[in-house]
Every structure is written in C-alpha cells, then in structure tokens.
Design a protein around this nucleic acid. Structure first.
Length: 872
RNA sequence: GGACGAUUAGCUCAGUUGGCAGAGCACUGGCCUCACAUGCCAGGGGUCACUGGUUCAAGUCCAGUAUCGUCCACCA
C-alpha cells in the first residue's frame, strides 16, 4: 500500500495549501501567548529564488516553525523591496527592446510602467517561497512602496529634516556616469587595477599622479607642513607650464599629504578627488569641474572638452610628453572605485545632494550592541559592526532615479527657499509663489532601514506594533550588515526608542561544491527549484540547515543533498515499518506493560536528543540540531531499536508486542515533531498516519525534555548489550563466517552483571544471530575466538569454521592496540604532578581504567597462548 | 594600510566551558536478512598547518610564522 520510496512532490503539493488555508501561518495581533517575530529581509521584486535566499529563508522558517509549535504567537512577516536601480534597469531593458527609452515615456508614464511590471512579474519570489515551505503570514505581506510604508518613509524624512539630521550640501560624491546617479560610499566597490603613475613637472616641483586628466581641474598644490624640502613654497603662488599654457597655482601645507609617498607633493583637484576636496575646503581653493556627469570632459577642459575621461587621460599624457612635462611613468597597481551595479568606474565629482548626518544615530546603535540590548551572533561580527559605526560618514540618500520614494521637498524659484513637508505642497509657504518638486528619489536602503516598524503599521500606533516590536531575531547574511542591519538599528532606536530586534543571527554565504561564489557569469549557479524538484524540499532544507555551522561559508554539493534525500527515505521506511505493524494497537492499554530494556533506552535517548536539539536551536546552532536528529533517527531508532522491535512485533508474546508498538509510536511521533521545522512536509505526512493528538503537526507542541526522561541505567545496560553484539559481529566479519551460519556463543559476565546478560540473552541472540549461553563460571571452549567487552568475556565457538591463523593475527592486533592505551595511561599515572594536582575523581577514573585495560590485556595474552598451544 | 576568519581523515566539514579526536561522502570486506540496496553489517584511514609558551593535561588558551580567504580604507 505505502510505496517503499518516498515521493516528495505529491506530499509537498498537498500540505502547503492545506496549512495556508487553515490559517496556521497567521499571527494574532493580540494574544496572551508571548510574541515571536521575524521580519523577512525583503528580497528584490526583480529577484527569483537563489541559493542564498533558500538558505536564509530555511533558517528563518526553522525558527518560526519551532517557536510556533512551542506556543509563541509567531509572526514571520514577508515582503519585498522595490530595489530602485535594479528594478529601473529591468524595465529600461524592456523598453530598449521596444526601441524606446524612459525619456520617451516621461517620468510619470515610466513609473506607471514599473508598477505594472511589478504587478505582473514581481511576485515570482513570493511564489517560490511557498515552494520552499516558508510559513510566512501572507496576510501581512508588505512592499517597500506600499502606501503605508511610503507614509513611514515620509514621516521619517521630515522628522530628520526638522531635527537637522537631514541636509543638502554641495559635496564631493560618487557618481556613476553609466547609471546617471549618485552612489553612497557603501555602493562603491573597490577593485585593484593596473595603472600608470605619471610623474609630471609642476613648475619648480614635480609630483606623481594616477589621474593626469584631472590636472586641468587643479587649483592647488599641497605638501606636508613639516616637509623641509618644500617649506619655502608654502603659501606662495607658483607658475607652472601646463598642457594648455602657463598657470599660476597656490601651494598649501596640509596634514593629508604623506611626505614619504611619491615626491611628497600632490596636485589638488577639489572637483574630482575626495581628499583634494577636503584640502580645498580647508584652504579655500576654488572648485574647477573638468569632468561632467556624462563622464566626458567639460568646457572648462578647453581643447579636451567633450573627450571621454579615459581618452582625455591618454591624450594629456601624450601632449605633456611632447612638451617635456613628463619626467617618468611607472606601472602602478591601485584600487579604483566601481559602481556596485554596473561596475563602471565611479567618478568623484561635486554635486548638490541630500545627506543624513548619521553620526548621532550611530552612537546610539553602537551602544545598543555594546550594552547587550542587541546580541549579534556569532559575536565576532560585533567588532566589525562597531568599527563601522565608529567611523561612519554622512549617508548620501538622494538618487537620480525615477523609481523609488520621491524626496518630499519643494523649491521656490521666486525666493529660493526649500520646503520639506509631510503633505504635498503646491505653493510656497513663504511667498506664495510656484513650487518646483524635488525630482530625486531616496536610496532604496532608506526605506529598508524602517522595515521592522514600518511593516507593523508605524507611524500609527497599531496592535501589531505593540505586540511584535521589537522583533525577536533578524536572520541575514554579513554582506548587508552595514547596508541594512546597522541602519535598521539606527532608525529603530531613533524612532521607536527601542531596538528593532533582540538578536541578529549572521549566517555565511552559500558557495558551490568547489567553494566558488555562485554567479551567473561563472555559470555555477544551482537553481534551488530544480534541487527541490529532484531531491524534495525537505531534503534540501535539511541539507541547508545541517551545513549552517556558524562563521564559515558553506559548500553545497549534490552528494550532500542526495545523502539527506536518503535520510528522508530512511525516515519514510521506518515509518512504513511502524505503520504496517500497528494492528491491534491500543494506545490506552499499551503503556501498562512493563518496558523492556530497549524501550527504556530509546525513550531515554529521545529525551536526550530533544535536549540537545532545543539547546542548539536556542543558540542558532542549526547544524548541531539537525545532526542530533539525524544521528538519533538513523543510528539509534532505525539501526538498533527497529531491529530489536522486530523480535516482539513478529513474535507471539502479545504483551511485549503491545509494549513495543507503544514505544515505536511514542518515540517516532515526538521525533517527527522535533524534525518538523526542518522537514515540514514528510513529517506532516507521516504524523497524520500515526496515532496523534491534534489537527496538524504544524501546531502540535514542540517536544520538551520533560516529556520523557533520560535513563542512565538503561543507557549503560544497552551499551553493554550493543558492545557484545558488535563484538560477535566483528568476529564473524573478521573470521569470514557467512551471515547465514548461526554462531555458538558463551558470555562470561562478571559476577555483578550476571543478571543483565541472562535477561538480555534472547536479545543478543537475535541481533548477533547466535545461540548464546550465559555462564559466570564458563571456561573458554576449544577452537573459540575471544572478545573482551568491558568486564565481560565473549567466547565465539568456531569449531569447524575457525581459522586459527586469522584469529591469532586479530588477537595480536588487539594486544598491540591495548598496549598503546596502557602505556599512555601508565605514563599519565606515573607523573606525580598529575596525581597530585588533577581533581581526585579524574585520577581515580584513570586508575580504574588502567586496571580494566590490564585485565583485558591479560585475557588477550592468555588467549594467544592458547592458540600457540594449538588449542586445548 | 587596518580588521576578521580559515588551516582537523582522500574530499566537505563538526568539535560549546582545556580531560586519550567525530560526522557525511569516498574507500575495503561481507550481505538482495520479510521497512529501506536512496539499504544492512563490519573495517581501514588523522604528528588536529608550523614554532614556542601557559597548564598535571592543549585541536581547544597565549605569542609568533606560513598559506588561503573575506571585509573595511581618501597615500595621490
């Protein structure tokens, strides 16, 4: 009836809609239960699910499902980000395919078009999240440009303006000539490039530069104030011969100059270099912009006007060489700034932009982590966070794009005033004149920074906000620690007067099997959807969780996923065995029967596993949690308990059978609950077929340690039994005894443990395929192999099958092994420092161990002697 | 230039407070044993990068070295 292979697709397709329809994903705005909330790091609406998403969302779903089962009023709040540049790009490309530009459409029409695109194609990733099993509360789905969130953005902007923290400034900014917008410092990537370091004559001085083309914008020359070589020039104007004739230039002294580097002289181009801009400000040097927003030389560049900046560089060097102004050219490798989106070389230039003075906000956010109100996990990231916060610079928030939150500012050209307002303005509040609205939009990260409270209804005082803010944990990758996490901390503290999240769990990156970053250009992208298709969502999720060790990037290999697919199949078949043997099972009467050793043992092991899993999940050690369940289910439950259970299931002792059925069910059922956050689908499917309480495993309680207790006695007794069984199997293997042959075995237990082995004799017989005799006074039979298990001796009769030579080799090997161990222990105990200074119980334990080891050795040696005598 | 991380079995990686090294895969041998060959049983395999130090005891703590990697950064 039940197939012997687990087929995920049908199961997955069935349960997700069922859960959703029953409303299990929905959180309560008001509830007596404690709240647990995670806000999703909103993926770009342009995106489709990649491995990084799958990873982070799996971890979030594991936490969400676990907490939901644990009785929390749990909200995992989903949403998407409007992703300014990225989205604008997509639609611009579409237009290009139609032979149009956004200018052809005009701003309003273009923005309408983007919205239309969003409605049609922006939901891809949301659909894919469902495929992953994500238990988000879809009734609270948000988008960064929703009316509510837009209102929050506006409220924040205006407030910061009123507080003087937002301002406009003519400042040197990072300009992308390709994207035609300003970029924040964080959006500029550094890349080492080979270039030329050109030493040029500068009147009486000489200096080196990598950007000769900006020479035309020089308005000064700077040296270090303490540099004796150039002291005579400081404050003077010098006449220099340039490519476009003689120029008079001021020499200033500034600390920013490194006298050790180059000639110790720099040209100052305040219009095209951030350092020079600062020097220029300090010394009142004029700004001369020779490169325009299009990346081409401006009219101020004279005969170079209109040339591309790189072409101009080449031409100017050539011209200077002709004029004898170049002393020498050295190859030079240095970092250039690139646009994070299009990798175009960023041009520093001066322009009027909007900024946030984040310094005061950063101080509060920094303190929140330092004082433990926010915990960053793993803790190592806290240092990175602090360093960034301490060195923070103003945040450039305006963008020259069309898609995004428009900056709520208006200009009056009549009286030159600027107005920032919560409501749209039509006439100048000062002079009543006409107003011109600001065209720039805000950096996408501005709205993301408000995400934890804007999504909950702020600026209104909503029930959601009261219930779920501060959120419990933020799960994200380190790549957006500064872009997003830091800024949420700043904004949350400033506007809510409370941290936005208690914990920040920073996870690593997903790489391919070779450790390469997955990227389209490398062609090594593995599509999560195809993985789920081939191996099942549960196996995929479990793989991600099992690899999520803290602090290290994870390499995703197909083999690994396949291994966990096998695990799902193993679980399926274990359940199949249980389900097909429940005939006559009476949940009410079964517990009355006395549990056998194996029952007590597996129940104890379950309790222990529950403890380990809970502890691991509390500490965000997903891999430890996953691994504990894996080991328990496969090694303990399947490999040992199920094999043991078969005896009574297939036997005729009805009481034993009932008791076994009971254990099978009462161990498997909580194990499924324990596993559910990782493997939601298969666990639900099996759980529904097992005797259970409740409508769905999704809303069943997460197992607690108190549900069952560990059983040290049963653990030790089972260890002895398992040791004997393994020893017998070992001998069978080493001696090449065919599996079909039933061995004859004598166990000689120590006097104290005699009862255990007598009681468990049938168990050993079944598991080891042997006829077992337990006799505390037994002597070693002729032609038998010896194994020493703890304090018991096991004789395996090999008459007829024994190979004496092989047995001798085996014994010799064991003796060598134990000799090493004994030598180690002896050496340890021989040292007076150890004996005197280590805790008494540790020394005592060592002594006991040595005694045991020597006993084992004596037996082995005796055995070897017996063989050398040719057997008795 | 600064900061951080990594280095453990053939491969990919665990190893939380110091107490004789673990998993998965791969490998070897034997098994289609009535849940599962996507499986079962057994086995081999490690100077925990290197050098010193602290300690009775170091993969674990400290210092340094080497190699790899990541992030940050206004030496033109």
């Amino acid at each position: 009836m039940i197939p012997d292979r687990y087929e995920p697709s049908a199961v997955e397709a069935r349960w997700y809609p069922e859960w959703e329809q029953r409303g299990y994903f929905r959180a309560e705005a008001e509830s007596r239960a404690p709240a647990y909330c995670i806000v999703i790091p909103p993926p770009n609406i342009t995106g489709s699910l990649h491995m990084g998403h799958a990873f982070t969302f799996t971890l979030q779903d594991v936490l969400t499902r676990m907490k939901r089962m644990d009785g929390f009023n749990t909200l995992w709040l989903p949403g998407t980000d409007h992703a300014g540049i990225a989205t604008q790009y997509v639609v611009e490309r579409q237009l290009a395919a139609e032979g149009k530009t956004k200018e052809d459409l005009g701003r309003e029409e273009f923005v309408r078009r983007v919205w239309r695109w969003k409605e049609e194609s922006g939901g891809t990733i949301i659909r894919q999240l469902r495929r992953l099993g994500a238990s988000c509360d879809w009734s609270r789905l948000r988008f960064t440009m929703d009316p509510g969130l837009s209102r929050a953005v506006r409220e924040v902007f205006v407030t910061l303006w009123e507080e003087g923290l937002i301002y406009r400034d003519d400042y040197i900014v990072n300009w992308c000539p390709r994207c035609q917008t300003v970029l924040a410092d964080l959006e500029v990537e550094r890349e080492e490039r080979d270039g030329e370091f050109v030493y040029i004559k500068y009147g009486p001085l000489s200096l080196g530069t990598v950007r000769p083309e900006t020479k035309l914008g020089d308005t000064g020359v700077a040296v270090h104030p303490d540099d004796p070589r150039y002291r005579q020039y400081v404050g003077r104007d010098i006449d220099i011969e340039s490519v476009d004739g003689p120029v008079r230039i001021r020499v200033v002294a500034d600390e920013a100059v490194d006298p050790e580097f180059g000639t110790g002289v720099i040209k100052v181009t305040p219009g095209h270099d951030p350092v020079d801009f600062e020097i220029g400000r300090r010394h009142n040097l004029p700004i001369r912009s020779v490169i325009g927003f299009d990346g081409k030389m401006t009219a101020l560049a004279g005969r170079y006007a209109g040339l591309d900046r790189f072409e101009a560089r080449r031409r100017i060097v050539e011209d200077m060489q002709r004029l004898g102004l170049v002393e020498r050219i050295e190859p030079y490798r240095h970092a250039v700034g690139l646009c994070y989106r299009c990798k175009t070389v960023v041009e520093p230039l001066v322009s009027k932009q909007w900024f946030v003075n984040v310094k005061p906000l950063a101080e509060a956010a920094d303190a929140a982590v330092r004082e433990g109100r926010i915990t960053i996990i793993p803790t190592g990231w806290a240092k990175t966070y602090h360093q960034w916060m301490e060195n923070i610079r103003p945040w450039t928030i305006s963008r020259q794009l069309w898609w995004g939150h428009r900056i709520p500012a208006w200009y009056c050209d009549t009286d030159g005033s600027v107005h920032v307002s919560r409501t749209d303005l039509t006439e100048c509040p000062k002079c009543g004149g006409p107003l011109r609205p600001e065209h720039d939009v805000l950096d996408t990260w501005f709205s993301s920074a408000l995400w934890p409270f804007s999504t909950l209804g702020w600026p209104d005082d909503t029930a959601d906000l009261r219930t779920f803010y501060p959120t419990s944990v933020l799960v994200t990758g380190f790549d957006i620690l500064f872009f997003w996490v830091a800024r949420m901390a700043m904004m949350g503290l400033h506007f809510m007067k409370e941290v936005p999240f208690r914990d920040v769990y920073i996870h690593a990156l997903v790489r391919d099997a070779e450790g390469q970053k997955m990227s389209k250009s490398k062609g090594n992208v593995v599509d999560p959807l195809s993985v789920m298709e081939r191996f099942g969502t549960d196996a995929f999720r479990f793989t991600l969780a099992a690899l999520a060790a803290q602090g290290r990037d994870i390499r995703l290999s197909e083999q690994r996923i396949e291994g966990f697919r096998n695990f799902a199949n193993k679980l399926w078949n274990a359940a199949r065995l249980v389900l097909t043997n429940l005939e006559g099972y009476d949940a009410a009467r079964a517990p009355a029967a006395t549990p056998a050793l194996a029952d007590r043992w597996i129940e104890g092991r379950l309790a222990e596993t529950i403890g380990v899993v809970r502890e691991a999940l509390d500490a965000y050690r997903f891999n430890d949690a996953a691994s504990a369940i894996y080991q328990f289910l496969w090694n303990d439950y399947c490999d040992w308990y199920l094999e043991i259970a078969k005896r009574s299931l297939y036997g005729d002792d009805t009481a034993a059978r009932a008791r076994t059925q009971h254990t099978l069910v009462t161990v498997l059922e909580p194990t499924l609950r324990l596993l559910h956050p990782f493997m939601p689908f298969i666990t639900e499917e099996i759980w529904q077929r097992l005797p259970h309480v409740g409508d769905s495993i999704m809303v069943a309680p997460y197992p607690r340690g108190g549900d069952a207790r560990t059983d040290a006695g049963a653990d030790a007794a089972m260890a002895a039994v398992m040791g004997v069984v393994t020893a017998i199997r070992n001998i069978r293997g080493e001696m090449r005894v065919p599996p079909g042959v039933k061995l004859t075995v004598t166990i000689r237990p120590p006097a104290t443990d005699g009862v255990l082995f007598s009681e468990q004799r049938p168990l050993v017989e079944a598991l080891a395929r042997a006829a077992v005799t337990v006799d505390a006074n037994a002597t070693r039979p002729r032609q038998s192999a010896l194994a020493v298990v703890g304090v018991a001796e096991v004789y395996v009769d090999l008459a007829g099958v024994v190979d004496v030579g092989a047995e001798r080799q085996r014994l010799e090997k064991e003796i060598r092994r134990i000799d090493e161990t004994i030598a180690f222990t002896r050496a340890k105990l021989a040292r007076p420092d150890f004996v005197e200074r280590a805790p008494a119980e540790i020394v005592e334990k060592e002594r006991e161990k040595l005694g045991e080891q020597e006993g084992v050795r004596a037996k082995l040696v005796a055995s070897l002697g017996w063989i050398d005598d040719g057997g008795r």
